[in-house]
Write a protein that binds this DNA or RNA. Structure first.
Length: 270
DNA sequence: CTAGGGATCAGCT
DNA sequence: GCTGATCCCTAGC
């Protein structure tokens, strides 16, 4: 009775508009069973993307090699690489030909915390093998000291919170990279799977779902397609869209100097 | 706050 | 082919 592992999500559960699927994914579990072991994350924050009609979607300008999985059947993982160093994972919704997806933004690690911790540690990013614990232990000790000797729990808890807080961290904790682009989340023999919400939560109550504008999106900022569980510490901080000012070439000496308000930010917020 | 870094793609030639 | 702008971000000041 304890495990309470629910079944894999049926494909037709995901074969719906992403705006409907997204809130239903909160509380569901994404798990990756790799050679290193199993890590599972209970989803706490997601965003819906609507494909062809959504300027914020990778699929807005049609099918490409990169986004091809989104145009396939529902229930597969769309994994993409961004900012030169990060992966993000989406759940594909809707039937083939219609591209829509739910970006998985954050979650709580509920199984395999040790492995997730290792993947998120600096040592592992330098390519250390999983059994090389030396560097990590030193790092942990230092972090615990910095966090305050009185409460070793507190530092542990805050690190646990950050393990899958944010879309790229979530991928890192789960060991998701481009090799899993297209993986079937609904197949029992898949290494990347999506399980339903446990029928009974420990507290016995349903969490309240809040909504708001998506993070970092400039067009399509008018819709509240970000969904998260109220009170969840793993939900990433809201960050309004900020566009980097264009890197200008040095002005000719004859041109008058521009006002100090070059950074762009000061034009926001009115 | 900023640097960091690689892939992608529209728009060129 | 090439170039430059962009990207749903994170770690570390």
């Amino acid at each position: 009775m304890e495990p309470d592992l629910t079944d894999l999500l049926p494909r037709d559960f995901l074969d719906r508009p992403s705006t409907e699927v997204a809130p239903d994914l909160l509380g569901c579990v994404l798990e990756h069973e790799s050679a290193e072991g199993l890590v599972a994350v209970t989803l706490t924050e997601v965003e819906a993307y609507a494909g062809a009609v959504d300027p914020a979607s990778h699929a807005y300008r049609g099918r490409t090699t990169r986004n091809a999985v989104m145009f396939g059947p529902a229930g597969h993982a769309y994994v993409y690489f961004t900012y030169g160093m990060h992966f993000c994972v989406n759940v594909v919704c809707m039937p083939p030909g219609t591209a829509s997806a739910v970006l998985l933004r954050a979650g709580k690690v509920t199984a395999g915390e040790e492995l997730a911790q290792h993947r998120r540690s600096p040592a592992s990013q330098r390519g250390a093998p999983p059994d090389d614990r030396g560097a990590r232990s030193l790092g942990d000790e230092r972090r615990e000291k910095r966090a305050g000797s009185g409460a070793p729990e507190a530092s542990g808890a805050s690190r646990a919170r950050d393990l899958a807080r944010g879309p790229a961290r979530l991928c890192q904790a789960l060991g998701i990279d481009r090799a899993l682009d297209g993986a079937d989340l609904c197949a029992p023999d898949s290494r990347l799977r999506l399980r339903g919400r446990a029928s009974t939560t420990r507290s016995g109550e349903k969490s309240l779902i809040l909504t708001g504008p998506r993070v970092g999106v400039r067009e399509g900022a008018d819709v509240s397609w970000r969904f998260w569980l109220d009170g969840e510490p793993t939900v990433s901080a809201f960050r309004p869209y900020y566009r980097k000012p264009p890197t200008r070439k040095p002005l000719p000496a004859t041109t008058s100097r521009v006002a100090p308000c070059e950074r762009g930010r000061c034009h926001r917020g009115t």
